[in-house]
C-alpha cells in the first residue's frame, strides 16, 4: 500500500498498533480540509506493527498532548517534502478535556459544562491531578 509523500504537514509515526483511530478522532482530523491518511498495522522492525497518521496540510493545535495519549509516538514536521524536525512529544503541563475525572465527589462530575482539567504535578512519575478535587489520574 502506498501513500504519496507529504509536501507540507506532519507525520505521526510509531503509534501503537490499534491506537491510530483513537488519535485520529481525538485530534478531530476528520474536520481538516487537507488530505489525511491513517494507516493501521503497518510492519515495523522496531515495534512489530504500528499505526501511522499523515496530514498533508497546516495544523494549528498542540501535539504535545500525544505525549500523554501515546508516549512512544514520533512527530515528523515536513516542509517542502523534507523532514525538518523530528521529535517525541513531552508530557504536557496541562490536559484539557482529554480525560474525565472519575472521583464521584468531584464537582466536575456533576457540572457537565466545566472543562476537565488535569495538571502534571510529578513529571518523573507521570502523575496528573484534577484541578478541582486533586484526584490522581490513573
Amino acid at each position: 500500500m502506498n501513500v504519496d509523500a507529504i509536501k507540507n504537514g506532519i507525520v505521526i509515526d510509531h503509534i501503537q498498533a490499534g491506537q491510530g483511530m483513537a488519535i485520529y478522532q481525538f485530534l478531530n482530523l476528520e474536520t481538516l480540509g487537507c488530505p489525511v491518511a491513517l494507516m493501521m498495522n503497518v510492519a515495523s522492525r522496531q515495534m512489530g506493527s504500528k499505526d501511522i497518521i499523515k496530514v498533508d496540510g497546516p495544523i494549528d493545535f498542540d501535539l504535545n498532548v500525544l505525549g500523554f495519549i501515546d508516549p512512544g509516538v514520533t512527530i515528523d514536521v515536513i516542509e517542502n517534502e523534507v523532514c525538518v524536525k523530528k521529535y517525541h512529544p513531552s508530557l504536557p503541563a496541562e490536559l484539557r478535556d482529554v480525560v474525565k475525572c472519575k472521583n464521584p465527589r468531584c464537582i466536575s462530575t456533576v457540572e457537565q459544562e466545566l472543562p476537565q482539567i488535569f495538571r502534571l504535578t510529578d513529571r518523573k512519575n507521570k502523575i496528573y491531578r484534577c484541578v478541582y478535587c486533586d484526584g490522581k489520574l490513573d
Binding site: 468531584c106 464537582i107 486533586d134
Partner: peptide, 25 residues
Amino acid sequence: PKEGAPLVAAQHASVPVINAGDGGH
C-alpha cells in the same frame, strides 16, 4: 459537598470567595 466547587465559584465570581469546606477536600 462537591470537591472543587468553591474553586469553580472563585473562577467566576467578581468578589473574593472563601472556601468554607468542600466535601472531604
